[in-house]
Design a binder for these strands. Structure first.
Length: 352
DNA sequence: TTCCGACAGTGGGGTCGCAAT
DNA sequence: ATTGCGACCCCACTATCGGAA
């Protein structure tokens, strides 16, 4: 006998980042949708969409709320991702953002979990039970609320295939575990990371008290005889590494921006410019429509590369696969860190 | 004593809305 | 009309600290 409960507040379970997808039958794997994480609370016909940080986002996705209102439930708490779907079937965060404010958009709500249904809390149930409940609730319906499929099998194989298809990555989940808000090792995400050598053309000063050397590097690539600005990179070094980097950059200082055209606005006025002689390696998730790198992080200087050798790599449908791996020996960090384990930074430890 | 997880802080690319220029 | 800024979203990563192992 289950006591009648109210729909609990939405507190999302988050995934830990790992270099490699986990293996074994204890795990199932889902596509990592590139959109907004949204919890959908239904209570007596009233629908509220919650962002990951507890903001009410019902007004941002009215069509999702309307579709949720039509579900045949008295009360429920769904967990999933609202994403914009491209013609090729992939989801695109940029397309989603572009869809704001305009009337035309193709949104889907991919539901991968169900934490409450008609007075009963499901969060303590094993994942596969909860997912079966999602599937029963949503069926194979072709509406905008979709059941997010999962896959069994080799995590590494599934990850490789996801990257080959140009997806953002996968999320692997322990099939037998309850739902736990916050970040823990029962959900693990592995991303399809791009890497690119880029030329350093300037840097900004740090803004906070916790840094004293560099805010961000301004990077670009040669094209048509000019250096094109590709964005800023503001993380990936230690304080010590940043100080060493700034000393080197100081010796390359020049008055004029080496970028054509120079970065616009405040950035173009406040940055320190340098002769474009240093090449660094940057990891990032994708090129934006504006030709900027998204989610960039500094991986180290490429002492073996000259700026003229840098080429912007264009994604091709079949070769976007970049298996997660450690950086190559040829791309050391600006400042080597003490290794804590033979494998370097391995974030994921399997809990028994 | 060592290790690890949680948290705060600093940085990125975007959108929108509003206020100042 | 343009520009700057803050509040949101999506993030990566480092530094720190307290508690568990």
């Amino acid at each position: 006998m289950v006591s009648r409960r109210k729909v609990p507040p939405y507190r999302a379970q988050l995934a830990q980042l790992a270099d490699e997808a986990p293996e074994g039958d204890a795990w199932v794997h889902e596509i990592k949708y590139d959109g907004y994480r949204i919890g959908c609370a239904i209570e007596d016909g009233a629908v509220t969409l919650w962002s990951r940080n507890g903001k009410d986002w019902t007004a941002q996705f009215p069509e999702v709320a309307a579709a949720a209102r039509r579900l045949k439930v008295r009360s429920a708490l769904l967990d999933g991702e609202v994403a914009a779907v491209l013609p090729d079937g992939r989801t695109s965060f940029q397309a989603l953002q572009n869809a704001f404010g305009t009337g035309r958009r193709e949104l889907l709500y991919f539901v991968f979990d169900l934490l409450h249904l008609d007075g009963e809390d499901l969060a303590e149930r094993p994942l596969l039970e909860r997912k079966a409940a999602v599937e029963r609730l949503l069926g194979e319906g072709a509406g905008i609320i979709r059941y997010a499929q999962h896959f069994s099998g080799s995590g590494r194989d599934i990850h490789r295939e996801a990257c080959r298809l140009g997806l953002e990555g996968i999320v692997s989940k322990r099939a037998d575990r309850p739902y736990r808000p916050g970040r823990n090792a029962t959900w693990v995400k592995t991303k399809c990371v791009l890497r690119q050598e880029l030329v350093v053309g300037g840097f900004t000063d740090p803004e906070g008290a916790a840094r004293d050397a560099i805010g961000a590097l301004l990077v670009g690539y040669p094209e048509g005889g000019a250096l094109r600005f590709a964005g800023k990179v503001g993380t990936g070094w230690t304080n010590e590494g940043a100080r060493a980097l700034r000393e080197r950059l100081a010796r390359l200082a020049q008055e004029q921006s080496p970028f054509t055209p120079p970065p616009p606005g405040r950035l173009g006025r406040d940055a320190h410019w340098v002769r474009p002689e240093l090449v660094c390696e940057v990891a990032f998730t994708e090129w934006t429509q504006d030709g900027k790198i998204r989610h960039p992080s500094f991986q180290g200087l490429r002492e073996d590369k000259r700026p003229e050798e840098v080429v912007r790599e264009r994604p091709t449908p079949t070769s976007t696969s970049t298996p997660t791996r450690r950086r190559t020996p040829a791309s050391p960090r600006a400042s080597p860190r003490p290794r804590t384990s033979p494998t370097g930074r391995s974030r994921i430890k399997r809990g028994r």
